[in-house]
Amino acid sequence: MLQLLSFTTISKQGDLFISQFQLRQREFIERQNYDVHSVDGMEFDKYDTLASKYLVYTLDGKTVLGASRLTPIGFGCMLQDHFDEFVDDKTVFSTPDVWEGTRFCIDSRLPPEQRRLICQTLVCGYLEFGIQRGVDRIIGLMPTMILRTVFERNGIALERLGAARSFGDSVKLQAASIAVSQMQLDRTRLRTGLEAVLFDDRPIRQEHAA
């Protein structure tokens, strides 16, 4: 099941909140050696804000097996703050209804078929969330291989925001944009065989950047 977390759900979904930060600790710090903050075995950064929403995949309602963070860029944008050289047209950072997707991760200890299902579910969740919330597009920075295998392979048409560049240990990164539309979602559902995936029983509230 894919669930949507926010600061308003901490009292009811505390186990999932803790588990997703623990997953990020394992996948980004322990496995990939990210130089980011950690406390008590949980990875976090300044982009974990009250405006952030979290898509988390869980089977038991307590343990997170896959996750991603979504934040309206008016409340903080990692791509703009740290990697704007990857973006040719900077006007994307002042465009209304743009969110940033970050910290996309899946538990690497799981078998390949389960990881593939979680990946596809998160991808569909991006679009379902975007449509429900009136998001125009979701931007982010990822390795070029991930853009192809995670998003394009599962039916999402991407717009590259700039050229791919080597970063760190010769990994090529590229900024891209996902246009949120019903057509994108229909194509992704057809490609993955998934129907509605995102469980969110709370009323939608509009976020507004100052």
Rank of each mutant, 00 (worst) to 15 (best):
L161W: 08
D107Q: 05
E195K: 14
L198A: 05
A163T: 06
V135G: 07
S108N: 15
D97A: 13
F104W: 08
T121A: 11
D97K: 09
N154H: 06
A176T: 08
D169V: 11
R148F: 05
D186M: 13
R202A: 15
P111H: 05
T95S: 12
F151Q: 01
E113M: 10
M145Q: 15
R189S: 00
E207F: 08
L122T: 10
K90P: 11
Q120D: 04
F199Y: 14
A209P: 02
I139K: 02
Q206N: 11
I204K: 08
L198N: 10
E207I: 15
D89N: 14
C124D: 01
A176E: 01
R115A: 12
A196D: 12
S170E: 15
R103M: 00
L161A: 01
D186A: 15
F86D: 09
I204Y: 11
M142Y: 09
V180W: 04
D136Q: 08
G101D: 03
A209L: 07
N154G: 05
G125F: 01
V87N: 13
F129I: 00
S166L: 08
A164T: 10
Q182F: 01
L110F: 13
G155K: 04
S170N: 15
K90C: 06
I118V: 07
R191P: 00
G168F: 06
F93E: 12
Q174G: 05
A179T: 13
I131Q: 02
P203R: 11
I131P: 05
T192G: 12
F167W: 09
L147A: 06
V180M: 06
R116V: 04
M145S: 14
L122Y: 03
T95N: 07
L127H: 07
I106R: 07
D200H: 14
A163M: 04
L117D: 08
R189N: 06
Q132I: 01
A175E: 03
E207Q: 09
